[in-house]
């Protein structure tokens, strides 16, 4: 029993894109210790993405119909076969299946791109909201009918539990800190929370995985996620203004992304595309 390829890509893209975003703090962290913490977080996420891409690549290579579907990807193949790098570095924006939340820059809406304008509150709020989901997802995926995905889940769960602890700790410090830290943490939540609505509107790939027992139906995690999030927000003296959700639901997980993903991929993929045969 194997998980659907597009479901594995959804999980992998979430991890890779958030890992790439968090890596932007490398060398620019607010203090040295946080610089390292975010680099650790990124390496955990990119490690998860690698395992998932490797699994997806082997499934694609073993199935002629899937191989045909990905035949247009020619970069980083080995002996004609798709590799993890083919999937990470040679797919285009519309082929990525990450949630829109993962690709947003580290600042509120309608703010510039400069490094100096990055807001750590946005970074922490996003890591908190995503980690709260992923501790639940990986926990459930430990019993996936896809044994390899279950093994990846067991490893990832330990990592993401620490990510949640780290982000929750900072969110409480920000929310319950001074006037400015509270205001910025609240603004970050108000900006990011509506993107979480997409968690509860599964893509066809997520639905297929949930139906065959290899994936998890995220709708069943919603109450638990709300409880996790609300507990920490209460401790942080922060509030939620996202319920009931009104308006557009982000569609990144079905391939309709914000304008930010293209820039992120351009930076992340440029080396592999400029030097397709480069190796470490």
């Amino acid at each position: 029993m194997k998980a659907p390829v597009d479901y594995l890509l959804h999980l992998a893209d979430n991890a890779l894109v958030l890992g790439q975003r968090n890596a932007e703090w490398c060398g620019h962290g607010p203090v040295l210790e946080e610089d390292l913490a975010l680099a650790n977080n990124s390496l955990d996420l990119i490690g998860q993405a690698r395992l998932l891409y490797q699994h997806a690549a082997s499934l694609i290579n073993a199935d002629p119909a899937e191989a045909l579907r990905f035949a247009h990807l020619q970069g980083a193949r080995q002996n004609g076969l798709i590799t993890e790098d083919t999937l990470a570095y040679f797919r285009d924006t519309a082929e990525f299946r990450c949630h829109t939340l993962m690709e947003l820059p580290h600042h509120g809406p309608l703010v510039g791109y400069a490094v100096s304008e990055r807001d750590y509150a946005v970074t922490i709020a996003r890591n908190f909201l995503v980690s709260a989901l992923m501790v639940l997802v990986w926990d459930r995926l430990q019993t996936s009918k896809d044994a390899q995905l279950a093994a990846i889940a067991a490893k990832s769960l330990k990592e993401v539990r620490y990510h949640l602890r780290h982000a929750s700790d900072w969110l409480v410090r920000f929310g319950d800190g001074n006037e400015e830290s509270h205001r910025r943490a609240q603004a970050a939540l108000d900006h990011l929370l509506p993107y979480c609505e997409a968690f509860w509107q599964p893509s066809p790939a997520e639905q297929a995985a949930a139906a065959d027992g290899s994936g998890v139906d995220t709708a069943t995690l919603r109450d638990h996620w709300n409880a996790l999030v609300n507990d920490t927000l209460t401790e942080a003296t922060l509030s939620r203004h996202d319920q009931p959700h009104a308006g557009y639901v982000a569609q990144g997980h079905v391939g309709v992304h914000s304008e930010h993903l293209g820039f992120l991929l351009a930076e992340m993929q440029s080396l592999a595309r400029a030097h397709p045969t480069a190796i470490w």
Partner: peptide, 14 residues
């Protein structure tokens, strides 16, 4: 670090 819990967490990462 600002307090003991914070110091422990940062020590883990560093």
């Amino acid at each position: 670090a600002s307090d003991a819990r914070h110091a422990l967490q940062m020590a883990r990462d560093v």
